[in-house]
Nucleic acid binder design. Structure first.
Ligand SMILES: [Mn+2]
Ligand SMILES: [Mn+2]
Ligand SMILES: [Zn+2]
Ligand SMILES: [Zn+2]
Lengths: 151, 151
DNA sequence: ATTATTGTTGAAACTAAATTGCAATAGGAG
DNA sequence: CTCCTATTGCAATTTAGTTTCAACAATAAT
């Protein structure tokens, strides 16, 4: 999978916009890792590799990368937005540890049933669902138990 | 239901904090409507009723009101956080129209099954789930169809 | 190849949400 | 009532995100 660049290039061209080295650097850096990311992190990663791309350019290009369906917003945390890949990643939801921040991705077919049921009941044309399940992972629960904080 | 005030009062006392007229005004105003709300809106509602409570006090008290389980964060939209009642409101999820902003609250028992399944599979102690289902409501779909935008 | 058009860039200014420092005030325990 | 210290309003600050602007560069036309 190194197709993101080509896809984004053609998306940009089709919109009558221009392919620039900055756009290439940004999209490459985003897809150089499979993790969830945020703007600041991405900016630092680019800088560390010697790129001179500005934060303004990242902020300006993220909406385009979302529009091209390569990434999407996942959650707003610590005062800023976080993103993840869509391309090459398939639909999934998140199980998150409130203590250590661990994230587990999962897919549950029943959610599509629920979606369908809701669409019928409330006469909605449903585009997507986002389920976040939050709690304590096994490590964090063990630590808490050892410390005697919770049951 | 006018019990929120008493509950918050005793929560504040138990924490060794102080009950003030500002806290009373804020909690009363929050529970004077059943709608989702944000800080600015709440501030304006208070001012219109002649309250002199500052925004800083609202920002300082919202975390306490959340800690007392009377309200919670629902979603971050238009650059700021939105909240909703928990007390007197029961757990529910949201179906939202991406076009007009309409929000429908629903409860689906299958979600608790999914929760349970995930807890077992990934060894998590689950605290809660949040499901947002987004799409177009029937009115918005009709308008779009009339305008010939989508199928 | 040259030129014209116009989208893109980095830097800096700006906006708005949320937080914090501070001096004045006021709960509430004793 | 007295004292201790939490809370308040205000203003300053911080930070995410947007916008302005002049220099630049991708692309199409000539
Ligand atoms: Mn993910
Ligand atoms: Mn709700
Ligand atoms: Zn954990
Ligand atoms: Zn609608």
């Amino acid at each position: 999978m190194g197709n993101e660049i080509a896809l984004f290039r053609s998306f940009i061209s089709k919109k009558g916009l221009r392919n620039t080295p900055e756009r290439e650097e940004i999209i490459k850096e985003i897809f150089s890792s499979h993790d969830h990311f945020d703007v600041d992190e991405l900016y630092l990663r680019l800088r560390q590799k010697g790129s001179r791309v500005s934060k303004a350019s990242i902020y300006r290009n993220i909406p385009l990368i979302m529009e091209s369906c390569l990434i999407r917003e996942v959650w707003h945390e610590d005062g800023h937005m976080h993103y993840e890949h869509i391309y090459g990643h398939g639909h999934h939801c998140h199980l998150r540890c409130i203590q250590c921040g661990k994230v587990i991705e999962f897919v549950d077919q029943d959610l599509f049933e629920i979606e369908k049921r809701l669409g019928t009941k409330y006469d909605f044309e449903i585009l997507e669902h986002r389920l976040d399940v939050i709690g304590y992972c096994s490590e964090c629960r063990q630590h808490a138990a050892a410390a005697g904080d919770r049951s």
